[in-house]
Simulated scan of single mutants.
Amino acid sequence: MERRHGRRAGAASDVEAVLDDLYTTPPPGFVARREALALAARTAGRTEDSRRIHAARRPTLAAWAANLLLRSQPEESRRFLELGRALRDAYRTLDAEGIKELSEQRRRVVAALSRQAADLARAAGHRLSDAAQQDVEATLRAVLADEDAADQWATGRLEGPLTPPSDFPSPTGTSTAARTPRKAPKRTAAPSASAVASPSATRAKDDLTDRRRRKRQEELARARKAAKEAERRLRDRRAERADADAASQRARDRHEQAREEAAAAERQLQQAREELERADREQQEAEDRLQATADALAQAERAAGEAADEVERLSASDG
């Protein structure tokens, strides 16, 4: 029984890995790869896996780029999700000035990550249009601002871009005041003794206010630290990408130079082969001429000998 359960768990893990990989497939090749994977699962007798794979919907180019970013940069993506949680917590307690500062940092982080997604897409052979780039940025803004959007992106299987909310949650200290109109105070007589707060109650209220203020400051500090750390890592990744691009360009240049040198060497080798063939032919012709000359010389020597013999014979008969 445990063995059968282990096989089922292993099969579930296999199909999850297949789906994860499928959603990083560029959209133009998504359907063909999906059908091939579904057929393979069905042929192996995994009917339910085949059904799940076949039900996968092709992502848009922007959603695919967002999935690719998550899968290709797991550590950066994990920290980005953590940053979103920290920002959402901070926005609930910050004042307007703190929100303004974090909003600027949030925009820089989103812009940097969206450029990284575009770089990954281009490296995979698909350049993002301006509209697709905007959809990627909207998706990342949604991930930071909305917990449900963050959970969807964390699956790595987005089918379309996510829509961010109009803004982060309003601070608790101002949202109620913004929604509730302030009423004019009633004109009354001097307050009664029971309406006057005691010194201990006033101190307790002040302590609560101080604790809330310290909590907001601590959350703001954590959010600022997380945002700055995210910016630093993104700068490092961009620098590493620039170094990798430069190294790749140098490698391409060396490859092109080697290819040209190989082509030149091949041409020289071909010329040498042709020269060798000509030399072989000339050598054979020379040897043929040498043999013909030797044969003619031998024939002439025989003829001369025969003529000398005839002269000697005739001279002897005259005598």
Rank of each mutant, 00 (worst) to 15 (best):
V15H: 05
R3E: 15
V311D: 10
E282F: 04
D245P: 01
R250K: 12
D309T: 14
A150R: 11
L162Y: 04
A17I: 08
Q133S: 15
R141F: 11
T47P: 12
L208D: 07
L162M: 06
R203G: 01
T188L: 12
E104W: 05
V143F: 02
V143D: 03
L37S: 11
A40R: 15
F168G: 02
L140S: 05
L22C: 08
A36T: 13
Q283K: 08
R237H: 04
T188Y: 03
D148K: 13
G45T: 12
T180N: 04
H126Q: 14
A55R: 12
T188A: 10
S200A: 14
A258Y: 00
E287V: 10
E159I: 10
A62D: 02
A272T: 01
A9M: 12
T293N: 09
P28N: 10
L128M: 03
A154M: 08
R79L: 13
A262F: 03
P185N: 07
T139K: 03
A308N: 09
Q291R: 14
P26C: 08
A263S: 04
G84Y: 03
L81M: 07
Q270R: 09
N67E: 04
L234Q: 05
A294T: 14
R122S: 13
R4P: 04
R179T: 07
A197Q: 05
S192I: 03
S192Y: 05
A300I: 10
Q133D: 08
L297F: 08
A184Q: 08
G160R: 13
S175W: 09
A56G: 11
R214C: 01
D119H: 13
A121E: 01
T180Y: 02
A123G: 14
G84V: 02
A111T: 06
Q268H: 07
R42S: 15
A227P: 00
R237S: 06
A184F: 05
R85C: 05
R254P: 00
L290I: 08
A195E: 14
A124C: 03
E240A: 12
Q134I: 13
R203A: 12
L39A: 15
R3Y: 06
R42N: 15
Y91L: 07
E219R: 11
A154C: 05
